[in-house]
Structure formats: structure tokens, C-alpha cells
Design a protein around this nucleic acid. Structure first.
Length: 260
DNA sequence: ATGCCACCTTCAAGGTGA
């Protein structure tokens, strides 16, 4: 069973590219971020035609997350708990009736947080604290759990080309990397680190400055697993080829294969 | 230090991303 995460940077602009990739990669479950549309604008019919059920938490213009699944979606929850004033669509969670039993999946679009001296950075840290608290609750269920998405965190120095370039950036700030580490220490396994872990294998290349052509990317999309999910993890693949497609997203899909 | 590109939207130029 293959589960993908992909920040698509507008599901409507990207639709032909997405459908091409879905037909060739054949993920069973996909967590999408930055769909940048309202629920009624989501191209549900096109994905249903490929055999996917859709759980969508959209928003006008910005953000927006979704979970697509070839298996039945038993229930879905929109929004990260803990702050009624947070109106960004950055979190959706679903319980999926996977072949070997229920699988809880979340699609996560963690705030960018730049610049670091702004309320956006405060919001990022607050959001990470809430994610931590919620993940701790979910881990207590001792279920197969997948928290996949765009974390906007450069966790290791080798997850970028040159750490000096990112020294004052909200993706690399010490508080942010510490918060990510603290989340992992609750008992989550980063699928890529568990099965591959090579340096300089990126998931995002900026449209600007010829970042793709120069090989100047960053690794910020992660698939985090509960122990029960990590036990059945088989492999992880970064679909770098998607960055060379026509009208590409600036992110590429990361796919984990699970015996689940 | 800023903009580079690509996306969004009260269709024009400013907001946002990373």
C-alpha cells in the first residue's frame, strides 16, 4: 500500500500534472497541501474517476489540505484542535479502512513562519505546540498513524544546500528545529530517515534563482509514523521526477510503502 | 537590502510563499 504526501501549490492550476502523476505512480492514499481552493472548487469528480474518495478541508485562495484514498474513508476531521481563532485550513485527519485494518492519516501544512521577528513566526511555534499535543493524544491510541505533509522545517543541515543561506529563516530557526525534534521524541519515526536518510535529497526547489537547475533544494516534506505504522514501513521514495514535469509544483511527492 | 517565480484575487497590482 502506497501513501503519498505532496504540496501541490494549487490543485486547480496543477490538475493535469496531478492526474498524470497519479496515473503513473498509483498511490493508494494521498495527502495534499496548498490546494488553494474552497471545498466546492475541489476537482472531486476528476479524482473520483481515478478511483479515489476525497476528504477536503479547503479555504479561499490560500492553504487548504485534502486526503484522497482508494479505500473507504470512515471519518474525517477538519482543523487542528486547540485554538478556535485559527482559521487557516492546514490540517485534515481521516480514519481509512485500509486492507489490513484501520489507518489514521493526517495531511499537514505547517505554517511557514517568515519573517522570524513577526507574529507569523509566533503562529508557527504555537501551531507546532498544538500539533505536538494532538500527536501525543493520537499516539496514546497505539494505532497505525501517519502524519504526512509539508512541515516547513529544515531538520538537518544536510537537508539544504547551504545552511548559511537559511541561518535567519523560519524554516531553520533553532526553536523550530527543536519543536520538530520534540514532536519526534514523542515516539514518531520519520519514514525517510528510517529507510534512506541520505544527505541532500530534497523535496522542494524554489521557482526562483534557478534553484532546480542548480540543485539548490530543501527537504521539508515528511512522513511521520507511529510505532505501529513504522513496524510495517517497507520503503520511501522521493519522486524527484515530478519537479521536471510540465507546470510543476515547487514541491515533489514523497511516497511511503506500508504493509498495511 | 531587494527581487528573482508562480500562485491567489474585487482584473491590477499587492499579498503570499520558502
Amino acid at each position: 500500500m502506497k501513501i503519498a504526501t505532496w504540496n501541490v501549490n494549487s490543485v486547480r492550476t496543477r490538475l493535469p500534472t496531478l492526474l498524470d502523476w497519479f496515473e503513473s505512480a498509483q498511490p493508494d492514499i494521498a495527502c495534499l497541501q496548498e490546494i488553494k481552493c474552497q471545498n466546492e472548487q475541489f476537482p472531486r469528480a476528476e479524482f473520483e474517476a481515478l478511483g479515489y474518495n476525497c476528504a477536503v478541508h479547503g479555504q479561499k485562495s490560500y492553504n487548504g489540505v485534502a486526503i484522497l484514498s482508494r479505500y473507504e474513508i470512515e471519518e474525517s476531521i477538519n482543523g487542528l484542535p486547540g485554538n478556535k481563532n485559527d482559521d487557516h485550513a492546514r490540517y485534515i485527519e481521516a480514519v481509512i479502512n485500509a486492507p489490513k485494518g484501520p489507518l489514521r492519516v493526517a495531511s499537514i501544512y505547517l505554517p511557514n513562519g517568515n519573517p522570524v521577528d513577526s507574529d507569523k513566526f509566533t503562529y508557527k511555534l504555537e501551531w507546532m505546540q498544538r500539533l505536538h499535543a494532538h500527536a501525543k493524544q493520537l499516539l496514546a491510541y497505539e494505532e497505525k498513524l501517519v502524519l504526512a505533509g509539508d512541515y516547513n522545517v529544515i531538520y538537518r543541515d544536510v537537508d539544504c544546500w547551504d545552511p548559511l543561506v537559511w541561518a535567519n529563516d523560519a524554516l531553520y530557526a533553532k526553536e523550530v528545529r527543536d519543536a520538530f525534534a520534540s514532536l519526534m521524541w514523542e515516539g514518531l519515526t520519520d519514514a525517510y530517515l528510517a529507510k534512506d536518510g541520505r544527505a541532500h535529497q530534497y523535496t522542494f526547489w524554489d521557482y526562483q534563482r534557478g534553484a532546480w537547475q542548480r540543485g539548490h533544494g530543501i527537504h521539508i516534506d515528511h512522513i511521520l509514523l507511529s510505532p505501529q505504522a513504522a513496524d510495517v514501513l517497507e520503503s520511501v521514495t522521493i519522486h524527484k521526477e515530478a519537479r521536471a514535469m510540465e507546470k510543476p509544483s515547487d514541491h515533489v511527492p514523497v511516497v511511503a510503502a506500508l504493509d498495511a
